[in-house]
Amino acid sequence: MHGPQRIVCLTEETTEWLYLLGEEARIVGISGYTVRPRRARQEKPRVSAFLDGRIDRIVELRPDLVIGFSDMQAALADKLIRAGLNVLITNQRSVAEIFATLRLVANLVGRSAEAEAWIAACERRHAEMRAAAARWPRRPRVYFEEWDEPMISAIQWVSELIGIAGGDDVFPELAVQRMGRDRVIADALEPARRAPELIVGSWCGKKFRAEHVSARPGWAEVPAVRRGELHEIKSCDILQPGPAALTDGLEQLHRLIGRVALAED
């Protein structure tokens, strides 16, 4: 069998991707936050959170590769490296970088052909969405909120997915900032001033409270608030830089944005 035989996945998107490739037998441990695919929680031991993990348990699993995501897992990766394990941390932020990471992982397990077929189908669907949105009478302004206290706007891949889905991110200048702390909105009235027609919340695993957003001082006249266009997309569907965001998360954005774009004024 090609490549690593015993893989620990510190984040959900790698687990989901390996299952989609038919290589789930290689997975020996997963993140406790994993919900996609649902069966992974029954089949695989949960050995980590996001920022930390059970180092002794991970070592006991004898992985020949541990795969994680982002600079936020640097401390966890350091512990695992010091424990003598091979660790791969990816740091994808854009749609193009997500595709590149999917290709990298697929190549590691000898599934490049299957990956290319999946990616090609995904890109065809993205092109269909762009074509559909081009026929809409307008592109709605979208405010995507990743966290509420402090307010954090869309990460780059989410901002790009909003564009593919037919809308315009109201904070494009923040989306290019790779670190969450650099996407913090200091002025609580600034999103209201940008007059989004759609507000989408995905509060990193915490339930989005549309009524709390609507009640923010100075937000009553925001078009999205007046029309009741405040919606949640669960973080597992949009904030994991892997297959889910490129498919289910994007499909949800497309439906929400399309409804606003085609609504009668």
Rank of each mutant, 00 (worst) to 15 (best):
I27E: 07
Q5V: 07
G249F: 12
A192Y: 00
R82T: 04
R62V: 05
W219L: 13
E116D: 13
R26L: 12
V35L: 13
H254E: 05
R46K: 13
K44C: 03
V260N: 00
I164L: 15
C236L: 03
V260H: 03
R216A: 10
A25I: 02
V109W: 09
T90C: 06
L102I: 06
R135Y: 06
V222G: 06
L108V: 00
L88Q: 11
P63C: 10
A188H: 13
V8I: 11
A215P: 01
K79C: 13
F144G: 00
G201A: 05
A25F: 05
I164V: 13
Q156H: 08
V176H: 07
I98E: 05
Q73K: 07
I58G: 05
Y19K: 02
W147Q: 04
F144H: 02
E123C: 08
R183P: 03
A40W: 04
R178T: 07
R193S: 08
E190H: 04
V109M: 12
G180H: 13
I67M: 13
F171S: 03
S48V: 09
A263S: 15
E211Y: 00
R255H: 05
L102N: 00
E197N: 02
S48R: 05
I55N: 00
A74M: 09
F144Y: 12
A244Y: 01
V35A: 06
E43A: 14
I199F: 12
G228R: 01
A245Q: 05
G3V: 11
M179P: 00
I162Q: 07
A261R: 01
V35I: 13
I119K: 04
W136G: 02
G166F: 09
S70V: 01
E221V: 00
E145Y: 05
P196I: 10
A188R: 14
L102A: 05
P172K: 07
S153Y: 01
I185D: 09
V176K: 07
E145H: 01
V35M: 06
A195H: 08
W147G: 00
W219E: 04
L239V: 06
